[in-house]
Design a protein around this nucleic acid. Structure first.
Lengths: 101, 101
DNA sequence: AAATTATATGAACATATATTCATATATTGA
DNA sequence: TCAATATATGAATATATGTTCATATAATTT
């Protein structure tokens, strides 16, 4: 029997699980989905999604640590945008898939 | 400014988050990755991945509920295999992406 | 420098989750 | 029906996680 299966090393496993963990929370999904259409400040995100500023900030830190989002500063305002085409593509792909029942 | 952003309804959000939650745990990732190469019994999975039979069984139930795996019976043995090409494709895609650093 | 606005942070809390152990269930064969 | 084998299940536990509240930090304007 031929074996096309390659066991996963710890590092790969960690990266993959972290990536999907980022996409496993409804709040983070909504934030990333919003950011797929452009850049928004923390307050804008909170208002659009009816979330507390603190909640958004915490989740943005999470996404920032995984380099899924980035920001630029303009005065006191931080404009966040997505920073990982691959992950965003997977998310949008899965959203479409889910919408087809 | 044109708006290409479509808010996510609750149901879609739930399906998407559940799907990614399934892929966010190292044990489930290893199981699904193994099943990408064929069908295996619960005991085989446990042995190959050095996991307790109980752990594997619990996680298979989780994956079964989300219809990510299916099984066929042969005597007392249950052979599990994957049951969602789309999700498996996303997983393998992300594994390859992670392996490229 | 003080006030204002925007964002980040830490602690506390409630909830969710993964694993383990012990045991139950199910199928087969003697 | 009893023994053997394979799998499932439930309770217990430890840990992880998301949200909230209060407050801190940072940049700007007056």
């Amino acid at each position: 029997m031929e074996e096309l299966y390659e066991p996963l090393d710890e590092e790969t496993l960690f990266i993959v699980s972290q990536t999907f963990k980022a996409l496993s929370d409804p709040t983070r999904i909504r934030i990333l989905h919003l950011l797929s259409s452009g850049e928004f400040s923390v307050t804008e995100i909170a208002n659009r999604l009816s979330l507390l500023q603190s909640t958004v900030s915490h989740q943005l830190r999470f996404l920032k640590n995984l380099r899924l989002v980035k920001y630029r500063r303009e005065g006191t305002t931080l404009y966040y945008s997505h920073d990982d085409e691959h992950v965003l593509h997977i998310l949008e792909q899965t959203i479409r898939h889910a919408r087809e029942h």
